[in-house]
Design a protein around this nucleic acid. Structure first.
Lengths: 333, 333
DNA sequence: TTGAAAGCGCTAACAA
DNA sequence: TTGTTAGCGCTTTCAA
C-alpha cells in the first residue's frame, strides 16, 4: 500500500498537521520532530498525493496542451517549446492531439477542465471555437496558439504573423518574375491559412495581378497529400511557374510530384515551402522556406498562459514575424 | 464558481447520492428524478470533478509517457501511436520529455506516480534505471519502450529488434563490398545503441572482418552533431567507404558534411540512415534507411500498459523486426 | 428507490 | 510549537 501522511504522522508520533507543515514549510517545527519526520519521509520515499492536494488547493500545477495534428515539424517543435518552458516553471503538461477533429476538441477541453488543469493552450482545429466562451466566460484560462479566431473572447493569443508570411513568400516569387503562382495548403477554415491567402492576395494586388481562386489547392497535410494537390493544381493550370506550399510534408510531396512530371525546380517551377525542416538544405534542389519560430511561439504561449492564470484580465495578441530562408528552389543564387 | 454535484442535488431537491447514481448509472432512479437531474446537468454543463473522483477511486484513467528526446521523428511518431491508442481506450496522456537528463527522469517518475497516473510508458535516458524497482516492486505499472535494461524488474517491454537492425544494415553494406564501415550514433549507454553495435559486430564477424572500436563515433543527435561526428570519424579513418548513421537528424548532418568534403554518395561513401523520415526519397541522393515501426511500437506499448494495469503478473518483451528501405545512398540500383 | 454518512489524502484556520 | 478538525467533490455502503 502507498504510504500516506497519516502513516508518517503515526510513526513519528505527531499529528498530520505537523507533517504537512514540515513538507510545505508553512510553519516552524521544532528540530527534533522535523528531523524525525524528514527521516521517515526518506525512509518510505514518501511523496504527497497530488490528487488530494489538488482537490484541496483547487489548482494542479499542470497545464493542458491541445493540438490538432501531430507528426508535423512545426507543431512538434511548438509543443517542445511549451513543454520546456512548462518544466522550467514547475508545471506538467497534459498533451492531447485532436487530429483535426472538432468534436473531439470540444470534448477534450471539457475533460481537461474537469481534470482541473490550471489552464489550456489550444491550437484549434478550425475557426469554430465559439464553444470556448463557455469556459472563458467563467475566467478559465485558455490561450490560443498558432491558430485563432476572434469569436473566442477573453483568450490571449500567440501566433505567427501569417499575413506577412503569405505576403513575403508571394512577393519573393513575384520578384523572381513569376506571375502565375499556385498555393497549396493543408487545412481550410483556420486563421493560418486564411491570413496567408490574404497576404498572397495583397502581394498580387501590389503587382497589379489578378487573384484567382483556382490557383489555390487544398490537400491533405501529408507527403502524399502534397503530391496529389500539386498534380491536380498543375493539371488545372499548366501555366503555373511557381508554388508556395504551406507545410513541410506537403512540400516534400510536391517536390516528388514535380520530379515525377519531369519538371525542373526552379527552372520550370519555383518553390517556397514552409517551416525550416532539417532536410531542406540537402534536398535536390535545396528548399527555400518561409519560417515562423515554433519554439519561441511555444515558449511565449506558456508564459502568456501563466500571465493569464495569475491575472484574469490579461489579454494580448502576440504576433511573431516570419523570415525567409532562401536556397535554390525559389530560383535564388 | 464551478457547479458541483451538491449544487445539482440541491436544485433537483434530491441527495447527492442520487445525482451520483444517475451520472454513473450505478442504480436505477425513478424516471422523474432522473429527467430532472439530467436536465440540470445539461443546463449547467456540469461535468464531475475528475480530481475528486480520482481521489476517491484511486485511479485516474490517465497514463504517463516519458521520453528522452523530442524533435526526433522516431520518438514523435511513437508518441503519436501511444496517444492514438490511449485515446481509443478512453485514457489521457501526460507527456514529459526528459531531454536525456537522468535525474530529471527519476524526478518525473516520482511526480507522475504521485499524480496517480494508472501507469507509465517510459523510454529511458540511459541504462541506469534500477530506481524503477522502487515503483515496480509495489506493482506500479511501468512499461519500457524503445530502450530497456533488464536490471529493471517487473517491467514489460516493447522495443524494436535493434540487434537485427544493426546486423541488417551492416550486412547490406558488406554485401556491397564495403569492409571499412563507420557507425555514427547519438546516445551511449542505452540498449538501442548497444544492440545495434552488437549486430554490427556480428555482421563483421560473419565476414571475418575485425571489429575496431575506433570506427564508432558518438555525436549529438542533431543535424550539426551528425556533421561533426562524420568529420571527426573521417579524419581518423580516411579509409572508410560506408557509414551507418543511427538517427534521422544525424543522417542529414552526415550527408551535408560528406558533400562539404566534396565526396560523392554512394561512390566515395555509401550511407544507410535510420528511420524512414519523409524527405529521404527526395534528398540527393535518395537515402536508404533501416526502419523500425514507431507507431506500432507506440500502440503496442499502450496495449501492454493496459494489460499490466489489469493484470499485475503480465510480463512480456515484445520485439518488432526492422526492415530495410533501399534507395540510392547505399549503392543500390 | 432514495438518502445519510464515511472516507479518499491533503491543507489551513483555529485553538491550545 | 503542535494538534484538532472542517472540508475540497466525489463514490459507495448501509439503512430506511
Amino acid at each position: 500500500m502507498k504510504v500516506t501522511m497519516k502513516d508518517i504522522a503515526k510513526e513519528a508520533d505527531v499529528s498530520i498537521a505537523t507533517v504537512s507543515h514540515v513538507i510545505n514549510e508553512t510553519k516552524h517545527i521544532s528540530e527534533d520532530k522535523y528531523k524525525k519526520i524528514m527521516q521517515l519521509i526518506n525512509k518510505y520515499n514518501y511523496i504527497p498525493n497530488s490528487t488530494a492536494r489538488n482537490l484541496r488547493e483547487k489548482r494542479t500545477k499542470t497545464a493542458g496542451m491541445v493540438v490538432s495534428s501531430f507528426p508535423d515539424t512545426f507543431i512538434t517543435e511548438m509543443v517542445y517549446g511549451v513543454e520546456e518552458r512548462a518544466r522550467e516553471m514547475g508545471y506538467n503538461l497534459l498533451l492531447v492531439n485532436t487530429n483535426e477533429d472538432t468534436d473531439y476538441e470540444e470534448e477534450t477541453i471539457h475533460l481537461l477542465h474537469s481534470k482541473m488543469v490550471d489552464g489550456i493552450i489550444l491550437s484549434p482545429t478550425s475557426n469554430d471555437i465559439e464553444y470556448l466562451n463557455k469556459f472563458t466566460n467563467e475566467n478559465f484560462p485558455i490561450v490560443l496558439v498558432n491558430r485563432y479566431n476572434d469569436i473566442a473572447k477573453n483568450t490571449p493569443k500567440v501566433t505567427g504573423d501569417n499575413f506577412q508570411t503569405g505576403y513575403d513568400a508571394t512577393t519573393h516569387l513575384l520578384k523572381h518574375g513569376h506571375e502565375k503562382i499556385g498555393m497549396v495548403y493543408g487545412v481550410s477554415n483556420v486563421s493560418t491559412t486564411d491570413e496567408r491567402i490574404n497576404g498572397y492576395k495583397e502581394g498580387l494586388r501590389q503587382y497589379n495581378l489578378p487573384f484567382q481562386e483556382s490557383y489555390l489547392e487544398l490537400g491533405h497535410a501529408t507527403v502524399s497529400g502534397g503530391a496529389a494537390a500539386v498534380k491536380s493544381l498543375l493539371k488545372r493550370h499548366n501555366d503555373i511557374t511557381a508554388l508556395f506550399v504551406q507545410n513541410d510534408l506537403m512540400a516534400i510531396g510536391a517536390i516528388s510530384q514535380i520530379k515525377d512530371f519531369a519538371l525542373k525546380i526552379p527552372e520550370d517551377i519555383a518553390l517556397i515551402g514552409f517551416g525550416d525542416f532539417a532536410s531542406a538544405p540537402i534536398i535536390d534542389p535545396p528548399v527555400t522556406n518561409i519560417v515562423l519560430p515554433p519554439d519561441t511561439i511555444g515558449k511565449t504561449a506558456f508564459d502568456v498562459l501563466l500571465s493569464k492564470i495569475n491575472n484574469p484580465d490579461y489579454l494580448k495578441h502576440i504576433e511573431l514575424p516570419p523570415s525567409l530562408i532562401t536556397r535554390k528552389s525559389c530560383g535564388c543564387k
